[in-house]
Design a protein around this nucleic acid. Structure first.
Length: 274
DNA sequence: AGAGATACCTGGGAGC
DNA sequence: TGCTCCCAGGTATCTC
């Protein structure tokens, strides 16, 4: 399921193969997604060129030559491919953008949680309005222990859903929040407001280390995720607690437990995480 | 304002 | 084997 490292790999791949390409025509096969796909048909995309690809959290922002953007979110089963038009359409490929080099940008989403839509920007170079309230990118200097400590004061909720809140820090989902808290040795049940500055610094540092490593390995191919070229990410092999409930912790040997926190399954090691 | 619940959707696995 | 039930996930939206 695509999180920040997966979105970053998709962004890099699309920047490599789609920058400068012109859209020739749009085909929509099944319009129902998180938001209807039908507006893409009348958005006037034909003859526009992709000028660049940015990322904000788990969203990829494709800049178009008329100043608008194509906003993409991959939900939990979104896949994009750029390949020959000769390859038959797969069952859950909902949109084709035919490009001027004869290839096709294909947007697949089995569970229909993805977003693909054209947005106006409030001003050139900015992000669509719905992304304006996002917190800092975890891989930038703005996200550090002091920031996390400051914004977590008076927050009584558990640290895990806090870390997964895009307004706190952009793009950390269930898999990486789980792994980050394990590496930082902090229980996902700890109230965010109780964290010390030192613990916040540890969370920030582990966030950067784990996300950078996952980007380097091409993401985690948990269930449905694939890269643009169809390859699988290799970070899944390095997951230490996610999906390992009932198995012994690799560090201390304690049994990894699973519990629903903030409505999400959360695995953690009671021995290592306090 | 913060926190929790819910809807959205499909495929896969468990249990009968 | 085939049926039903439940779970996975991010986000918007609702209520308290």
């Amino acid at each position: 399921m695509p999180e920040l490292p997966e979105a970053e790999n998709i962004r890099r791949a699309l920047a490599r193969v789609m920058t400068g390409r012109r859209i020739e025509c749009v085909e929509i096969f099944s319009p129902a997604m998180r938001e209807p796909l039908t507006p893409l048909a009348t958005a006037g995309l034909e003859k526009l060129t992709f000028t660049g690809f940015r990322r904000r959290g788990r969203y990829v922002i494709a800049d178009l030559s008329d100043g608008r953007v194509l906003l993409m979110h991959f939900g939990m089963s979104g896949v994009v491919r750029v390949e020959s038009s000769q390859i038959p359409r797969r069952k859950h490929e909902h949109v084709f953008l035919h490009l001027d080099d004869g290839r096709v940008f294909r947007f697949e989403c089995t569970r229909r949680f993805s977003v693909l839509k054209v947005c106006e920007l409030p001003c050139p170079g900015s992000v669509p309005a719905e992304l304006e309230a996002f917190g800092p990118e975890p891989l930038t200097e703005a996200f550090d222990g002091e920031y996390l400590h400051a914004v977590s004061r008076k927050r009584n909720g558990c640290v895990k859903p806090f870390l997964m809140d895009n307004r706190v820090v952009a793009g950390i989902g269930n898999i990486y929040a789980t792994e980050i808290l394990f590496s930082a040795g902090i229980s996902p049940l700890r109230p965010a407001g109780d964290l010390t500055l030192r613990e916040c610094a540890s969370i920030a540092a582990e966030s950067k280390r784990i996300l950078a490593r996952a980007i380097e390995l091409g993401g985690s191919s948990i269930s449905d995720f694939r890269n643009v070229d169809g390859s699988e990410g290799k970070f899944a092999q390095e997951l230490e607690v996610y999906g390992r409930a009932g198995m012994p912790c690799g560090k201390c040997g304690s049994m990894i437990v699973s519990q629903r926190i903030g409505g999400r399954t959360s695995a953690f090691c009671p021995g290592c995480q306090k």
